[in-house]
Design a protein around this nucleic acid. Structure first.
Lengths: 223, 223
DNA sequence: TGATCCATCATTGTATACAATATTGGGCCG
DNA sequence: CGGCCCAATATTGTATACAATGATGGATCA
């Protein structure tokens, strides 16, 4: 059983986008990706199609695949959707969380802090997103978790384009507070904290003009 | 410019599933679908992949594609996700609705009633779903609208599997009341009505055991 | 000199061929 | 007679070949 080929490519590209090694707008040539992973264009196309479903990649017919560049409007929509889904999900998570879940979240936060200390902002951002996805998983809602995972991924692109004060990752305090609320199984508080956390995130963006330029594909994937 | 090939197949299969001409569990053979639409397996596979991403089709590796059969758990999750997204979206829609939007919704409801009168329950169900999607579009939230569209589609499968009293489509009254609230731009009422409508829908399902058996592909697509 | 047009090239879209895997049916053995 | 195993068949997974479309660059003409 190896669904691996497509899955591997999807996972690699996803991670590269998540960690901002592949900038929005970068072209993903089928031949080039295929050569890098040692597969034919057939499987590359399948992978790119899957990424386009989650709006991480934009497919332009007869032109090619590019890392998506969410518009300002789309950026707002993504965060509005998160505001609808995540607070209530955090509440559910607080009501169901187990010690094992708590330990996992704790570990995530520690890794996040470590990455920050090493200035690996890409990795820190990725872990920060995983934190949100983990909460959805704890809430035991696969369907909603899938939506949140997609929104988190798209948020990563939004951050790449519209993040202004890169120095101060205000995330950490929000996540720490959330973890405490979850540990106390305080659903109402978790819901409120998540709501506020998302608002903080959105207001830390500058939704007026974009930054960042495309990257070389090989450079991003073959370090 | 013809993205048509894949798009056409996706749309046709989607509609057939929506209208319950293709029952959950039906096998979608690549050769057979390709022959019906006069394209190669390449494009059929692309279409099936897209449908699998929205959970309308389940792809089993080395075995094939089947119309999805949502589990009871998944059925609950779908409606819980809708409960999170749709009421607030209905409120937004009420606040932004235009006369043209109202006319469109009115027309949808009329068509729905007509289909019901003709005993075309499949078509009635499809139109009933479209009503929800239209509301999301009116709310001017493409991202959320896409999620809702997916959930509505999956709901159609859930209904095919778990609907009990097929005779009484209680939908209509709910939709009529919603339309009145929207016409009055009463956001709070629209939100409450949508919430109740979704609860009604869910409680009209029997989430204990499934019904319905797979259908012949040709029979469903070539009427 | 600059812009436009056309030919060439590169890249994607689709079909087909081959490989790998699962299903099926018949024969064999107990 | 029933269960099991293996071969034949059908279906999916992947690679490659060909077709169609967009990008590129140089030559020509104003």
């Amino acid at each position: 059983m190896k669904e691996t080929s497509v899955q591997t490519i999807v996972a690699n590209l996803e991670l590269a986008i998540h960690e901002h090694r592949l900038a929005p707008g970068s072209k993903l040539s089928e031949d080039e990706v295929g050569e890098i992973f040692g597969v034919s264009r057939t499987v590359v196309r399948a992978a790119l199609q899957r990424l386009s479903h989650t709006h991480l990649v934009e497919l332009k017919r007869n032109i090619g695949a590019f890392v998506a560049q969410p518009s300002i409007r789309e950026a707002r929509e993504v965060f509005e959707a998160r505001a609808l889904l995540e607070p209530r999900t955090a509440r559910s998570a607080a009501e169901r969380i187990t010690p094992a879940d708590l330990a996992l979240l704790r570990s995530h936060l520690d890794q996040e802090e470590e990455a920050m200390a090493q200035q690996s902002t890409g990795r820190a951002l990725h872990l920060s997103g995983r934190f949100h996805i983990e909460i959805a998983r704890i809430a035991d809602q696969n369907t909603i978790a899938e939506f949140i995972a997609q929104l988190v991924a798209r948020s990563s692109l939004v951050i790449a384009l519209y993040w202004q004060r890169r120095g101060a990752l205000c995330d950490r305090h929000g996540h720490e507070a959330l973890l405490r609320a979850l540990a106390r199984q305080d659903g109402a508080l978790a819901e409120e904290l998540m709501k506020q956390h998302l608002l903080d995130l959105m207001t830390s963006l500058d939704l007026r003009n974009r930054a960042s330029a495309p990257t070389s594909l090989r450079e991003a994937l073959l370090p």
